[in-house]
């Protein structure tokens, strides 16, 4: 059984985010790109399933929509243990355009399931997985925290408001996974790092598709002001509810 992992890349969480061209574009000159951490956990688990002889998973492929600059990230995915990588050669513009590119490639691919990380820390928060499922007309299972197998049938565990549910799907599914799916991301070993370049990394052309939304400008979040001293408990309750809107 083949498992497909959709990967996106985001600025390293310690990177300072800056913008250029009158704050209309991300200034990517100093950014260190990394695998979206949720996708990294998804890949980690997929590779663990492949390495576990007790599961039917025998192949892991990673797919990414992005320009040539994201190839090092795909190779890191290969170093971690994916067997094959595919890059769809276009910059992601919004979740819809990204999901449509993925769907065009994934349509009809023989696989057990497709995994997407719950949210990518850039623009597309959590939308690509759901859109992809709809475009492929697959079931989507969100908040997935683990996959087990009943023979060759995957059983997905998802977190719901008041507990956990195990579900199964007849046919392929798109899983939207979160923390817990794997404990920590797998660190690639030397063998993985050395063989990454010899594994297939296919580049395929993008299809024509327009985004549905457009990012027109960026601003810095308001900086944290100083402390506001309050004199009575009433003032505190009011501040927390009316001003901070947290209660």
């Amino acid at each position: 059984m083949k498992v497909l992992v959709c990967m996106s890349y985001i600025p390293d969480t310690t990177t300072k985010i800056r913008f250029r061209e009158d704050n209309t574009q991300l200034d990517d000159t100093t950014i260190q790109w990394v695998i979206n951490p949720w996708d990294e956990l998804a890949l980690t688990r997929a590779v663990e399933l492949k390495e576990d002889a007790g599961t039917p998973v025998d192949e892991v492929e990673i797919v990414m929509v992005g320009g040539v600059r994201c190839e090092p990230i795909l190779r890191k995915g290969l170093a971690i243990g994916a067997d094959k990588a595919t890059r769809i050669d276009v910059e992601p513009l919004d979740a819809f355009q990204t999901a449509t590119q993925l769907a065009a490639y994934l349509q009809g691919k023989d696989c057990g399931f497709i995994v997407c990380g719950i949210e990518s820390g850039d623009y597309n928060e959590a939308a690509v997985g759901g859109m992809l499922a709809e475009l492929l007309d697959y079931a989507s299972v969100s908040s997935v925290s683990s996959v087990q197998f009943d023979g060759v049938t995957p059983i997905y565990q998802r977190d719901v408001a008041n507990g956990k549910e195990q579900v199964k799907v007849d046919g392929p599914a798109v899983l939207i996974v979160q923390k817990g799916f794997a404990r920590v991301p797998k660190i690639p070993n030397m063998r993985g790092i050395m063989t990454a370049r010899s594994k297939p990394l296919d580049v395929i052309p993008a299809i024509e598709v327009d985004p549905l939304v457009e990012f027109v400008m960026y601003t810095a979040p308001p900086s944290k002001g100083g402390v506001k001293m309050l004199n009575t408990p009433e003032e505190l309750v009011r501040s927390l509810s009316d001003e901070a809107k947290l209660i």
Binding site: A95, A99, E119, A126, A127, G130, M131, E134, S142
Partner: peptide
């Protein structure tokens, strides 16, 4: 987040 993106595709609505 589980439903809205799917709907966006069906309606071709910006999400």
């Amino acid at each position: 987040k589980a439903i809205a993106p799917r709907l966006s595709v069906r309606l071709k609505a910006g999400f």
